[in-house]
Write a protein that binds this DNA or RNA. Structure first.
Lengths: 109, 109
DNA sequence: CCGTATCCCGGGAGATACTG
DNA sequence: CAGTATCTCCCGGGATACGG
């Protein structure tokens, strides 16, 4: 979402840090979908209905650079590319489940 | 962040729901700061260094309308207004603590 | 199938000045 | 102190077309 800012004491807030990682509009939903197993580009495009290929591509690239997902490409025709969560990405699933739990209560009430 | 979208089966994803609530740039940090107790407008302005009064005002108003924070105004001069988390807001603290835990691991690594 | 390349747009947020 | 009132800016993201 934005560069993490330091507090006045020079330390960085871990909450803001996490927010800056998953703050993008689609980022969290991508991780949510990868939490249930590896997916191909087109699968994600469908499950995240409404996302444009450009945006999906950008988000995937960022997440890969941050070490949250990994990209496996196969030299086949037609091409096949598979995305999955790294360990760092798996750790985020706890956050997502926490949010899911909150969202459920919100929707049920 | 954005209106929650329905899945193809008509249900709403709780993860997306929560994301839409706390997705704004400053929203999460406001709740983080209120988690440690009630705060006045100017206190928040200082702890969220960099936020403009306009934005803070807007975010506070939204959060109040969503029932996440409550606003108490005192008929004094100079005026005093106190913001605090409602029960619905307190529930979000779990999400924040989850994000804090992840952020810490990220920063320590 | 898996993406880039363009072009375009809206709205969230910044800066600043001002009021009750 | 606790906000509004303007104005402006920027860029994340949408739509679409195309390329390997």
């Amino acid at each position: 979402m934005e560069l993490t800012k330091s507090h006045s004491d020079g330390t960085v807030c871990p909450v803001a840090c996490t927010a800056s990682i998953i703050g993008g509009k689609w980022t969290l939903l991508i991780i949510r979908d990868l939490a249930s197993g590896l997916k191909r580009f087109h699968q994600l495009e469908r499950s995240l209905s409404g996302i444009s290929p450009k945006t999906l591509s950008e988000r995937l690239r960022s997440l890969e650079e941050e070490g949250i997902i990994s990209r496996k490409m196969y030299a086949e025709v037609p091409p096949r590319v598979e995305y999955s969560l790294t360990e760092k990405g798996q750790d985020l699933v706890a956050v997502i489940e926490c949010m899911r739990s909150y969202g459920k209560r919100w929707l049920c009430k």
